[in-house]
Design a protein around this nucleic acid. Sequence first.
DNA 1: TTGATATTTCGACATTTGTCGATATGTTTG
DNA 2: CAAACATATCGACAAATGTCGAAATATCAA
Lengths: 103, 103
Amino acid sequence: MNEEQIIEISKALGNPTRLRILKWLRDPENNFPPHEDLGHFDDGVCASHIKDKAGLSQSTISSFLSMMEKCNLIILTRHGKWSYFKRNEKVIKEYLNSIELEY
Amino acid sequence: MNEEQIIEISKALGNPTRLRILKWLRDPENNFPPHEDLGHFDDGVCASHIKDKAGLSQSTISSFLSMMEKCNLIILTRHGKWSYFKRNEKVIKEYLNSIELEY
DNA sequence: TTGATATTTCGACATTTGTCGATATGTTTG
DNA sequence: CAAACATATCGACAAATGTCGAAATATCAA
C-alpha cells in the first residue's frame, strides 16, 4: 500500500465517530436494527442506521462515509435509494501489514 | 489500547513527514549520518538529524516529535543538550493489534 | 560566566477538518 | 407524474493542524 493511501486511512481513523463506525460494522447484528426491506447485512448497514447510532447530522455522516469509502476502508453498495456500507477487510489488512512491515 | 490513544496515534500517522520519520527510525544506520559524540543509535536519532532529513523548520519538527512522543509512538532520551528519539515498538504493536482485533 | 549550540515555546497566519442546516438529486410508489 | 424518503452536495463558520521565524531555555565548552 502506498504512502498516500496509508495517510488517508490514518486520517480517517483519527476521528472517534469514524473509528466507531468501523467497529460497529464488524458486527451489524449486534449494533444495528435489522433492515426492513433486505432482511440481511450482506452488504453492510445503510447510512440512516449509521447516522442514528452516531448521533451526528445526516450531512456529516454522509461525508464521513464518503471519505471512508474514498480511502477504501469501507465498500458502498447501492440498493435502490439505500446506500449500504460494509468493511473492506482486505484493505484494512493491507493497511495494518504495511505499517507493520514498512512504517 | 483505549480509543483515545488509537485516535492520537492515527492522527500522528496521518501526516507524511511524521509517517516518514517513523519509517526512517526503523533503520537509523541507513537513513542518518552517525552521531559524532555517541557513535551509536541505541537511543535512536537526534532531533537535528531528523530535521535535516525532513527539510522542515526546526520548530515544526520539534512539535512533530513532541506529539509523536506524547502518544507514545516514539521514546525520547536526553543526552546533555541532545534529544534522541527511537521507535516504541511495543506501542506500535499494540496499536496494530487493537485495530486488528477491536476496530 | 560567556558564547555557541540543541531544543522548546510562542505568536502568527493559512489550510484543513468538524459540523450544521438548507438545498439538490435520485429512487420508489401511489 | 407527484409525493415521500434516502442520500449527496453546498455554503457557512468554528476549531484544529501545518508551518514559519523569533524568542526563550538548557547544556556544553572555553
